[in-house]
Structures are given as structure tokens and as C-alpha cells.
Computed example of a mutant assay.
Amino acid sequence: MLEVKDINAWYGDVHILRDLSLSVDAGEVLCMLGRNGAGKTTALKAIMGLVKPRSGSIALDGVELTELPAYRVPKQGIAYVPQGRRLFAELSVAENLEIGLMARDKGRDTRDRVLDLFPVLRERLKQRSGTLSGGEQQMLAMARALCLEPRVLLLDEPTEGLMPSMIAAIRDSVSRLRRQGVAIVLVEQRVDAVLPVADRVAFIENGCTRDTVAVEALHGDLSLVHKYVGVGR
């Protein structure tokens, strides 16, 4: 479905992504794990066209995305929830969702389906998004992205700074989306947040994919986690 092959990307003169490759299929959760600065966020930005690779290929169902301007990538069916959420803090919950709907000309039916995933947001539609709790803001960021009805969802550290109950809610949402056939690329630092939901894990080091394994291989053996992330929790 989504295939990233041998991409190279720079920030100025700094070579960040080095022949990085990964793939994810419909209804699959691929997690990228690696130390801070390994290139995980840059890989997501490259998929979205926010960082232009100098070489390599990024294709969705055979459609080459590197040739498209960034604003057209969401129209292909890829949604991105960046680290830090990037909500419009002065706008209401409903207005943030409306912006998501506009990206692919979706309507009220789509919004209702999204709110079924995050029912707490129904009670907050008129509330200014900047006044929501951290967990509620993360739910809104995901809900806004899902208003695109994406085939692929990119999540950058969605559980960062959240209390355990909110982490469980986000994890449940990821599992439900997988069952609906959405392909998910998940960047995380918390191994305990990854193991229950991921199908495969790609370990990223120095901008390159070093190992990609089925998540079952990590149950009871966290040697790869210690090698590439440095922690085992």
C-alpha cells in the first residue's frame, strides 16, 4: 500500500535520511522506534511532502508522492498527526474538525463517524481547543486527521505526556482504526505503548532502517530495543 524506498533527505547541509525504506499495508500498524534524532519525524514529514527527498521513492498504491506538492498529499488519503498536535488553539473543537473535513471535501456523516471514536469530543464541540486537557487535545488532533477519511494515518508520539487512562484510550483508537483497514505508521518512544497495538517494528538509526521485525519477536526479548533505543520500557 504505502512504500518508502531508499529515500535520502537533508536539512540544509545535514544528511538526515540515508536510504531509508519501510512499507505498511492496509489494516497494519508499523511502529518506528529509535533514539531521539534518528530521523523518525523527518521520515513522516518526507511522506507528507513537508521535507522533499533528494532521491528515492514514496508511493501509495503505485502513485508516486514525491512528485506532488505537499498540499496534495492529504488528498491522496494520507493524514498526519504531528508531535505537539498543532491544533488551532483559538478555534473551537467543531471548527478544528471542520478544517479537517475541508481538506477532502467531507461532510457531517464523516464527522459523526469520527466523533463515534472520540465521544468525549461531542461534549466539547463549542469549547476552545486550547482549553482542552492534553489527552483531549490529542484526541482532537487525531479526530481532525481522521476527518480526511485517510487510508494511511501517520502518528508522531501520540502518547507523549499523557496519563495512563488517556494512553489506553489512544491505543484503543489505533486498534479500532486498524480493524477498519487503515494503515498506520506510528512513531513512539514508549515500548509498552507499542507492543499491544503494532504488527511490525522498524528500528531507525542514523536515518536508516536497520531492522524490521514482527512485534511477536520482541515479547520477552528486548535486545533490539536496548540496542536501538537504549531503554526497555
Rank of each mutant, 00 (worst) to 15 (best):
D6L: 14
L17D: 08
L17N: 01
L22S: 02
E28V: 05
C31Q: 09
M32I: 14
L33V: 06
R35K: 15
G37C: 14
G37F: 13
M48C: 05
L50G: 03
V51N: 11
K52Q: 13
P53S: 04
S55C: 13
S55P: 11
D61G: 12
G62D: 08
E64R: 14
L68M: 07
K75V: 05
G77C: 09
R86L: 15
R86E: 12
E90M: 12
S92K: 13
V93I: 15
E95G: 07
E95R: 14
L97M: 13
L101D: 12
A103R: 09
R104F: 15
R108N: 10
D109G: 09
D109T: 13
R113M: 13
L117S: 08
R124K: 15
E136N: 00
Q137W: 03
L148I: 04
L155R: 03
P158Y: 07
A169N: 07
D172M: 11
S175G: 15
L177G: 09
L177C: 08
R178A: 06
V182Q: 10
I184M: 12
L186H: 11
R190S: 13
V191Y: 15
A193T: 13
G207C: 04
T209R: 11
T209A: 11
V213N: 05
V213R: 09
A214I: 14
G220M: 03
D221N: 03
H226Y: 06
K227V: 00
Y228A: 00
V229G: 04
R233I: 11
